[in-house]
């Protein structure tokens, strides 16, 4: 969001000084062999519940830093056979593990939501990578997220017990959405910007996360996906909405001229704006800092703040509203 461009500027400043020093002093880089002990195989939880959608949980294991992992070798990465219970204080449901072959049998809305977790779109062929996901069984299709409720999570896996709790806050959406050309005339023919008017609720303590989607593509996130209202509590203001990047985009592949701008071919620009609770927000905020500090000599490491007791990762509720700007070519 535009407010957060100062961070980009700060990075420019740091980049400048770094490059200045590197230029002045012709820094030298070379590969080294770090002999570092690692303790992989910690359980990582990625679970969500959203208004109108059933809960789902992806359970994975951490791996050694220099091991290769990608969409083609996922089989040993997932944690199978976990016993997972989600409860809203009155009702509870035991989640069932689905692998890619039976995912296609689930309702479309669930498949889409699951696919979004992996940043992909399930087309008619229904090809899913070799993933595993836990969600509600067919017998309890009515267990869906409701605004204002708190959801408990309990996981038993590999002899460990992990617990957490999250809420679905009341959602807020933009009053209006509009577009502007790319500020640099050189790019104005191929890219545009999307803006929205946002009225922040009067009470301090609103935490936002947003996704974007082009036409029928997957819901994607940008580099910085969360913000809070500390700086603009209760205000109404215009906000730049950067387009999300495909999952797995390497930060070094980002083109600063076009990053966040929408392509001239994009017709339906969809934005999902979610309200999340503080612990959920802290997870994303620290995760984004954790990612940003990879390779940053001046930033120190940031440990991701998890809301999972007994493990790592997140159990996060989304109170969402989705809207679109339809561009007439």
């Amino acid at each position: 969001m535009q407010l957060y461009r100062h961070k980009i500027w700060t990075s420019i400043f740091c980049l400048f000084l770094v490059s200045l020093s590197l230029f002045l002093f012709t820094a030298c880089e070379k590969e080294i062999d770090l002999n570092i002990k690692s303790n992989p195989n910690e359980i990582i939880v990625e679970g969500h519940i959203e208004n109108g959608l059933p809960p789902y949980v992806i359970l994975t294991k951490s791996i050694s830093l220099y091991d290769n992992i990608n969409i083609n070798n996922l089989e040993n990465y997932f944690v199978h056979g976990a016993n997972i219970i989600v409860s809203n204080g009155i009702d509870s449901v035991q989640l069932v593990e689905y692998n890619s072959s039976i995912l296609q049998t689930l309702p479309d809305s669930v498949v889409d939501a699951v696919a979004a977790q992996f940043g992909i779109v399930v087309d008619s062929s229904g090809d899913f990578p070799d993933v595993s996901i836990y969600t509600v069984p067919f017998t309890a299709p009515d267990f869906i997220g409701e605004i204002g409720k708190t959801y408990q999570l309990r996981i038993e896996a590999n002899g460990q017990i992990l617990t957490s709790s999250t809420t679905i806050p009341a959602p807020v959406f933009f009053d209006s959405l509009w577009i502007l050309p790319h500020p640099n005339p050189a790019f104005a023919d191929s890219f545009f910007q999307v803006y929205g008017w946002l009225q922040d609720p009067p009470q301090l303590g609103n935490y936002y996360r947003y996704f974007t989607k082009v036409d029928n593509g997957p819901l994607l996130v940008s580099t910085q996906t969360v913000f809070d209202d500390n700086f603009f509590n209760g205000k109404k203001f215009e906000i730049f909405i950067p387009k999300g990047k495909p999952f797995g985009t390497n930060s070094s592949d980002i083109n600063f001229d076009t990053d966040g701008y929408w392509d001239i071919a994009d017709s339906v620009c969809t934005i999902k704006l979610c309200q999340i609770d503080k612990a959920h927000y802290d997870f994303w905020r620290t995760l984004e800092a954790n990612r940003a500090n990879i390779g940053n000599p001046f930033g120190s490491f940031v440990l991701v703040k998890s809301n999972i007791i007994g493990g790592k990762g997140v159990w996060g509720g989304y109170g969402s509203i989705t809207g679109s700007y339809v561009r007439v070519p």
């Binding site: 002093f25 030298c28 880089e29 080294i32 770090l34 290769n68 990608n70 070798n73 000599p297």
Partner: peptide, 30 residues
């Protein structure tokens, strides 16, 4: 070539299947 800092260079991506991290030693003043 004294170590100024060490960072992990990330190449490729999880989607293309060639994600690779390499520790790099950066030295400043030759």
């Amino acid at each position: 070539k004294n170590t100024y800092f060490i960072y992990n260079k990330i190449e490729g991506s999880t989607l293309t299947g060639d994600l690779k991290q390499t520790p790099i030693n950066v030295s400043l003043f030759p």
